[in-house]
């Protein structure tokens, strides 16, 4: 009997070790798809609460650069308003009143939110926001900052949401080159937080360093024309059909703190129509 206990004690350790390793590995590979995994994420009220306190402290030190960013955005928006008002006046003069000025794919609302936790130094980076389902956030909504695209909402609790950062190979954002409208997916290779990679641009396209990359509007997550970055350099090996394009991201993920979540009003209508197509 005593020897049996010794035997069990000896091998149960290896068994327990393997059990825990397999459990951890499965959880990691499952990547938050398991029931109850919201409890073990930063959407959890306790963890999010702790982060929102520490976020308030770090925010204080970022005030200056955030102010600069916001005033820059203000200036750009005022400029756009002026241009649009001019156009509106021209259009109004020539068209009947029944014209619909807002196109259906441009009907979006912006929900302001604050980042209370953010990483840039991992391979899979996530962001936590201080807005959640009760503020209208839902999974798959796009998140943008003053300079450009930030990420996509992954999970929401009542008052908090986690966002898959653009710095995470699990997501790709469909982007296009603003100058000539060629589009392709943009993803991150996990190496440098300042650069992402744009692929699937065919080699016959003319590219220039400094070309602006914006969202294509071909998905329901981001409307068209939100800045993503500029081309830093590109290569195209002999025999490759597509360019490898290095894009300098517009958003500085190390100091971003105020973002807006994009609520596309006609998403359900568009997706229902699209899913009715035969595959």
């Amino acid at each position: 009997m005593h020897k049996l206990f010794l035997f069990l004690a000896r091998y149960s350790i290896v068994g327990l070790f393997l059990l825990l390793e397999i459990a951890s590995f499965a959880l990691f590979v499952g990547n938050g798809r398991y029931a109850g995994s919201v409890f073990f994420s930063s959407s959890n009220a306790l963890i999010a609460g702790l982060y929102s306190v520490s976020g308030r402290v770090t925010d204080f030190f970022k005030l200056r650069s955030n102010n600069e960013g916001l005033s820059g955005e203000n200036a750009r928006l005022k400029e756009r308003i002026a241009v649009l008002e001019n156009e509106l006046a021209l259009v109004r003069a020539g068209l009947p009143d029944t014209t619909r000025f807002v196109q259906p794919e441009q009907e979006v609302a912006y929900i302001p939110a604050r980042i209370i936790h953010n990483t840039t130094n991992r391979v899979r980076n996530y962001i936590t926001l201080n807005r959640g389902a009760s503020d209208g956030l839902r999974p798959d909504m796009g998140v943008v900052g003053p300079e450009g695209v930030v990420g996509i909402v992954q999970t929401t609790s009542d008052r908090f949401a986690t966002v898959i950062s653009l710095l995470n190979p699990l997501i790709q954002v469909n982007c296009k080159i603003k100058r000539n409208n060629y589009f392709g997916p943009l993803g991150w290779d996990g190496l440098d937080y300042r650069y992402a990679q744009l692929t699937d641009i065919p080699r016959h396209v003319d590219l220039y360093i400094g070309d602006t990359i914006v969202t294509s509007g071909l998905t329901t997550t981001f409307p068209e024309g939100i800045p993503v970055g500029v081309i830093e350099n590109f290569t195209c090996d002999e025999g490759d059909a597509f360019y490898h394009i290095q894009v300098r991201l517009a958003t500085d993920f190390r100091r971003i703190s105020n973002v807006q979540v994009i609520d596309y009003k006609n998403r359900d209508e568009q997706e229902a129509l699209e899913s009715s197509l035969p595959m």
């Binding site: 459990a23 951890s24 590995f25 499965a26 073990f40 959890n44 990483t119 991992r122 899979r124 996530y126």
Partner: peptide, 28 residues
């Protein structure tokens, strides 16, 4: 030791949104 290592890893994972990653390394 194994159970505590697992718990430690899960605690850090919960904050970093990397469920299972630190738990795996800690148990090892």
């Amino acid at each position: 030791t194994l159970v505590l290592s697992f718990g430690l890893g899960m605690a850090v994972d919960a904050f970093a949104d990397t469920l299972g990653l630190h738990a795996f390394a800690c148990v090892l």
